[in-house]
Computed example of a mutant assay.
Amino acid sequence: MHPKLLGACAFALCMTSAPGASDAVAADAPYPNRPITFVLSAAPGGASDSVTRMLAKDVGTRLGQPIVVENKPGAGGIIATNAVAKALPDGYTILLTFPQAVLNNRFLYSKLPYDPLRDLTFITEVSGGVMVMTVASGLPVTNIRSLLAYGDKHGLTFANWGPGSYAHLVGAYLGKSKKIDVTPVSYKGEAPMLQDLAGGNVNVAVSSLNTALPFLQSGRVRAIGVTGTQRLSALPDVPTLAEQGLSEREYEMTGLVLMMAPAGTPAQILLRLEKETRAAIDNPKFRARLQMLGMYAIGGGAAHARKHYDEMYPVQQRLVEISGAKLD
Results as ranks from 00 to 15, higher is better:
residue 76 G to H: 07
residue 71 N to M: 12
residue 20 G to T: 08
residue 321 E to F: 05
residue 220 R to C: 01
residue 55 L to A: 05
residue 246 L to G: 05
residue 180 I to F: 01
residue 296 Y to M: 11
residue 244 Q to K: 12
residue 120 L to P: 03
residue 111 K to W: 05
residue 59 V to T: 01
residue 109 Y to I: 11
residue 260 M to K: 10
residue 45 G to L: 10
residue 245 G to L: 09
residue 324 G to L: 05
residue 284 P to W: 12
residue 76 G to A: 04
residue 293 L to W: 04
residue 93 T to Q: 09
residue 310 D to Y: 09
residue 25 V to S: 14
residue 222 R to G: 04
residue 278 R to A: 09
residue 136 A to G: 12
residue 211 T to M: 14
residue 264 G to P: 02
residue 122 F to K: 07
residue 218 S to Y: 00
residue 111 K to T: 06
residue 25 V to G: 12
residue 297 A to E: 13
residue 102 V to P: 02
residue 90 D to L: 07
residue 159 A to E: 03
residue 309 Y to F: 15
residue 201 N to H: 14
residue 195 Q to T: 13
residue 133 M to N: 02
residue 158 F to H: 14
residue 311 E to F: 11
residue 73 P to R: 08
residue 176 K to A: 15
residue 252 E to L: 14
residue 214 P to V: 08
residue 82 N to M: 07
residue 317 Q to E: 14
residue 83 A to C: 04
residue 214 P to A: 08
residue 210 N to A: 15
residue 110 S to F: 13
residue 268 Q to E: 15
residue 213 L to C: 08
residue 312 M to C: 10
residue 247 S to V: 11
residue 35 P to C: 06
residue 121 T to E: 10
residue 205 A to M: 05
residue 129 G to P: 07
residue 97 T to A: 11
residue 224 I to Q: 06
residue 121 T to C: 00
residue 48 S to K: 14
residue 78 I to V: 13
residue 251 Y to L: 00
residue 138 G to A: 05
residue 315 V to A: 01
residue 162 G to L: 06
residue 77 G to A: 03
residue 252 E to C: 01
residue 28 D to H: 09
residue 111 K to C: 00
residue 66 P to S: 09
residue 247 S to L: 08
residue 286 F to H: 02
residue 286 F to G: 02
residue 104 N to H: 10
residue 124 T to W: 00
residue 9 C to T: 15
residue 299 G to Q: 06
residue 174 L to A: 05
residue 231 R to G: 07
residue 215 F to E: 04
residue 154 H to S: 06
residue 2 H to G: 06
residue 90 D to V: 05
residue 243 E to H: 00
residue 174 L to F: 12
residue 112 L to I: 09
residue 300 G to L: 05
residue 9 C to V: 15
residue 62 R to T: 14
residue 229 T to F: 14
residue 279 A to L: 10
residue 297 A to L: 04
residue 244 Q to F: 11
residue 60 G to Q: 05
residue 157 T to D: 03
residue 217 Q to P: 08
residue 270 L to P: 00
residue 277 T to M: 07
residue 45 G to T: 10
residue 146 S to I: 06
residue 244 Q to E: 10
residue 269 I to K: 08
residue 208 S to V: 00
residue 242 A to K: 06
residue 211 T to R: 11
residue 42 A to V: 07
residue 178 K to T: 09
residue 315 V to L: 03
residue 139 L to N: 05
